Simulated assay, not measured.
Amino acid sequence: MTGFTRRNFLGTLAAAPLMTGMAGLPVTAWAQTTNLKISHQFPGGTINEGDFRDRLVRVFAQQVSERTKGALKFEIYPGSSLMKTNAQFSAMRKGALDMSLVPLNYAGGEVPETNIGLMPGLVTSYQQGASWKNAEVGKELARILGEKGIVVVSWIWQAGGVASRGKPIVDPADAKGMKVRGGSREMDLILKEAGAAVVTLPSNEIYAAMQTGAMDAAMTSSTSFMSFRLEEVAKALTTGRDKAYWYMFEPLMMSKAVFEKLPKDQQAVIMAVGADMEQFAMKAAQADDVAVAQVYQKAGAKVVDLNAEVVKKWQDIARNTAWKDFAARNANCAKLLSLAEKTL
């Protein structure tokens, strides 16, 4: 290559957009590496230690980077350090955020259909939750999310329980008169029916609310009960380790606008690694359901489990309140609920 031609080449390269983030930037012939940002609300750790959702994201990033020989690289932002928790879903829709692992129902105010991700009594085991991905309900949910600009990369479910400052909430009657965080419109509906006052906030704000007494009890996942150190402010825990009346859908998602700008082979790697992460997530979530009971017992809290009879009581309330309310929101919601009931 002559000096003149080389200078022209370098000048062209310098003028080309660099691929430092996917949002809004075209792929150029010169781009070697694409850097993607992954945001989540959970405490940060390492690839081997800490909240499994943070670990999952780190393993995912490492494996995708390896399989694409460094063509895809990732920056991970735990603890809502990149943006506020409730802004993540909307940012992905607009292509302003590449990826996030976030409870789907947090988008309920924006996309009502997403509230099916925390619908009490609709998913009652990990195996049933896992079956959604390839069932009609999962395909319909993926279609709706696709229309809203979201790609589901990993289907992740977590059992939920209740931590309380005072007495444990086991039976619906136990919630009467208590200030409780449900976590979704639908959870709030069953709590109101049980006589509780509802408190609305993301899981990373539960500790402060319970510490000050602004809230008596909170529903969240086993992992969050530990990651946010709620055993320091709770005196009782109702676990989801044997049976639970609610499971949270907490997927790893990607902006469709960003996903579609990637070459097909890179898209395929992202989806393949995302699928691989689902078994890791189920095992980790089930392990946390057991571990959380040990953490709370060690802290001196009263730990109780649910039985089938109690689960049915909550499910009956949900069927007559939350399920009806959700189905009445729009035609998509009604269809999703009907398809989900087929998996029960």
Rank of each mutant, 00 (worst) to 15 (best):
M248T: 15
D276I: 13
G195E: 12
A331F: 09
V303G: 08
A334C: 08
L25Y: 01
L36G: 03
V27G: 06
F52R: 02
S131I: 02
L339R: 07
G213D: 01
T223E: 15
A130P: 04
D242Y: 14
A322N: 03
V27H: 00
Q63D: 13
V151Y: 01
L72D: 04
P103F: 02
Q266H: 12
T2F: 10
K261P: 00
S39N: 11
L201Y: 04
A175K: 01
K69H: 09
P17C: 02
D305H: 12
E193F: 14
D288C: 10
I317V: 11
G166A: 05
Q62Y: 01
Q211E: 13
M1L: 10
A322F: 03
M210R: 04
W323E: 10
A217S: 14
D288V: 09
S125P: 08
V303F: 06
F249K: 01
F249E: 00
M254T: 00
L104G: 07
R7V: 09
G11Q: 14
L141E: 09
G117W: 12
S222K: 00
A107V: 02
R7F: 10
K179R: 15
P172V: 08
S221P: 08
M119F: 14
S222L: 05
G274C: 07
A272C: 02
Q41N: 13
A331S: 15
I144C: 01
Y296E: 11
S184F: 04
K192H: 09
A31Y: 00
S81R: 10
E66P: 04
D174M: 09
P263A: 03
